[in-house]
Each structure stands twice: as C-alpha cells, then as structure tokens.
Amino acid sequence: MDPNAHKRRKIRETREAYQHALQDAFDARCTTQTEANDVVINYDLSGYAKNALKKYVPQLTTTYNAGELHDNHPVRFTNEGLRLDHQPENAIEWYVKIPHHEDYHLWMPAQPNPDQRGWLEALNAGDATMGESRLFERDGTWYLHVTATRDVEERSDVSAEERTPIGVDIGEASLATVCHRNDHGSPTAPELWADEGKIVRRLRKTYFTAKRRLQTRGSERIAESFGDDVWRQIDDVFHRVTREVVEYAESVENSVLVLEDLTYIRESMDYGDFMNRRLHGWGFAKLHAQIRYKAVEKGIPVETVNPRNTSKECHACGEVGYRPRQAAFKCTNDACWMGEYQADVNGAINIADRYLSGESHSREHTDGDDSAEDGGRLTAPQDTQADATKQETLGTYAS
C-alpha cells in the first residue's frame, strides 16, 4: 500500500494504539475475552481491532504460554473489518478499507501480490471467505496480509490408507527433519536441515545480544530496526526450508505431510524451566503455518498427530529411550536391533507412524485465523476440525 502523508499518519496512530492495548492486555495476563475487553475497551481503536485483540491475547497467555511479544507486532482486524474495492478500468485497480477507529475508516490504494491475485479476485467475487487480516510496515512500505478460505475440489481420489505419510519433525538443532517408510516398511530417504538450524540459532543469539546492548545504551529505535532485519533473515530461512519440505513431499507418490499438533506442544516440552523458555522461543508455529499453505498450493494434504513421546520412543520397538547426545537416540530394549539412531529421524518416523496408526486428524483453518504466528515467541495455528468439504486457506499479501 502507498498511502499519502495524512493516511500514513493515521495508520501509524492505529498501530501505536494497538501496540499499547496489546502490551497492556498481555502484561495483565488476560486469560478470557472478558478480561481482555476490560483492558482494550478504552483505547481509540475500531471494534474490529479490539475484537481481534480480545480473541488473540487469551491464546497467547493460555494456549501458547508466550513469554514476550515481538517488538513490532502487526495490527489484527477481525474478518468483518476490511472491504475491497476493485476497479479494473482504473490505473489503481484495488483499494482496501482499513478501520482506523470507531466511525472512521481509511481507503488505501493497494498493489496485490501477482502470485496471489486470484485469491483477491475470489474474495471480491464472493467465491472465497475473508478471514482475519494483519497490517504491518516494513522498510517504509505498508503491507496487508489477508486470510482467505474457499472450497476446492479434492485433487486426488487416493484414500488415507493408500497415502505415504511423511513425518516432519521441527526442532532447534535440525530446523526440520523429514522421513517416510518405503514399501517394505523401512525408513527411507531422511533429510535434515541442520545447517539451517545453526544459522537461525546464530541469528537469534546475535539479535538478543545486540538488543540488550543497544537497549542499555538507550538506542531503542536502532534495536528495533536491527531486530526487524534479523527476523527477516530468519523468515527467509524458514521460507526456503518449508519450500524444500514440500518439494520433498512432491517427490513421494501419494504423500501426506504429518505434523505434530501444536495444541499439545506444551505438554511435550517438559525439559525444565530454562529449556522450556528457550524452546518456547522457537518458531514452531511459523514453520507449521508455512508448510501448511505451501502444501495446500501443491495439493498435498496435511495431517496432525499428538506429539507426546515422539522424540522419546524407539520407532523400531516402541520402547522409551533417551538421548546420550543431542543428535542421537538410544533404545534401551536389549532385544531391539536398532541400538542408537539419529534422534530427529527417529522422531520423524514416529510422527509418520502415528498417521498409519489412525491417530491423525485433518486440521483446516475454518475460523478465519490461519495462525497466530506473528505474536508471542511461541504462537501456534488455531485450527478447527475440518468439514466434509475440503477447504483451502491462504494468506494473501497486498502492498
């Protein structure tokens, strides 16, 4: 979007008010919409932004147990808040109405992402349903991320039993690990993104070290700018890895990607207070969300399973083992042939096997909120059980 000076000032006012309201509600550890409403009601925001906050803050404080917020949080609006206007005969084809505060809205010229223009046209024609939207600024340019959902025809008649499950293990050491079993039931073609895990760990360490140093000097604005650049680099790594995960799935006939259900992620993270805080800062939800929408675009189904003990059980015999080293899993069953195995690959196979055991369930975004990925340091997709009709959900960007 390219607003004029007046509109640019107004949307910055909206962003500032939203950030204050979000931080106050988060600091108050609001666990219900009623509690959040008591905090945000007095802010000069539209009802669409307040309603999005009332839904979002309890998710951060209860479901995700987030410890902190991003420095530059996008402004969220519920699905009723935005309006699109398409005038294809004009030089500027698209305008979008952004809620500023009660009874005052801003019509902004917008340039759609060419790869996702069809989704905006589907929204404008009523062939897709608009979900939650997010407004943010990057390098002086304003962007609007709109969630859209539409019904699509199933791309394959392959039954769930005929599909080949590919387990996806998300971790800190290896950013992602994928593996599946071949026709004989043996684990085959594992792929790990360990170097990318090192890159992200280094970037995060650099960010937090520099942030503390700059804040000590009182350079808050420089710290914020530096942080934005680091998180963009991390996001670039995330996008490349998730694209390659989906390409891996494309190479396997009749594949289904199997992820851990993030609604259970807290119960699977019991490593003590220090490691829990560290792992809650990992980008699980963002990686999951990116894998989801990239897989949808390629017609690859995504399923989720309960992650409990996927990293602790032996994929060969089911015995609970341990990790003598970060990258190694040791089976404690003397009768098991496996002995020691690559830990992340073992976890990926266990995730895939839970699909085969019938534990999996499809998670589609039918509530208009594709994920909470841009909020707390651990923010997981809020999914609801899918209808019988398959739906596609995609975040579309306009700038």
Rank of each mutant, 00 (worst) to 15 (best):
F26D: 04
R76P: 12
D24W: 14
D38Q: 15
T34Y: 14
V39I: 10
L60C: 14
P74L: 03
V75S: 02
N51H: 11
F77S: 03
Q33F: 06
T32Y: 09
R76G: 07
Q23A: 07
L69P: 03
L60P: 13
V39C: 01
N37G: 11
L22D: 01
P74E: 01
Y48V: 00
Y56A: 13
P74A: 01
A49F: 03
K54M: 05
T34P: 07
L22W: 05
K50P: 09
R76C: 08
N42C: 11
A49T: 03
C30Y: 07
V57K: 00
H73C: 15
A66N: 05
A52H: 04
F26K: 02
V40L: 07
R29A: 08
Y48K: 01
I41Q: 13
G47D: 14
A52C: 12
H70K: 15
T31K: 15
C30W: 06
L45E: 07
A36I: 03
P58E: 06
S46M: 09
C30E: 11
V40M: 03
A25I: 11
T31I: 12
T32G: 02
Q59L: 05
A28E: 03
T78G: 00
E35D: 13
A49P: 08
S46A: 11
A52D: 08
T61F: 06
N65E: 13
L69C: 07
D27Q: 13
L69Y: 01
R76L: 08
E35W: 04
D24K: 11
Q59Y: 04
I41K: 15
D44E: 09
T32D: 13
D44F: 06
A66F: 12
H73W: 03
V40F: 02
Y43N: 06
N42T: 15
Q23R: 12
N65I: 07
L45G: 06
S46G: 15
K50F: 09
F26W: 00
N72A: 07
R29H: 10
S46Q: 10
I41V: 04
H70R: 14
S46H: 13
Y48P: 05
I41S: 14
A49K: 03
N42V: 14
N42M: 14
V39D: 00
T78L: 01
Q23C: 01
V39E: 00
L45T: 03
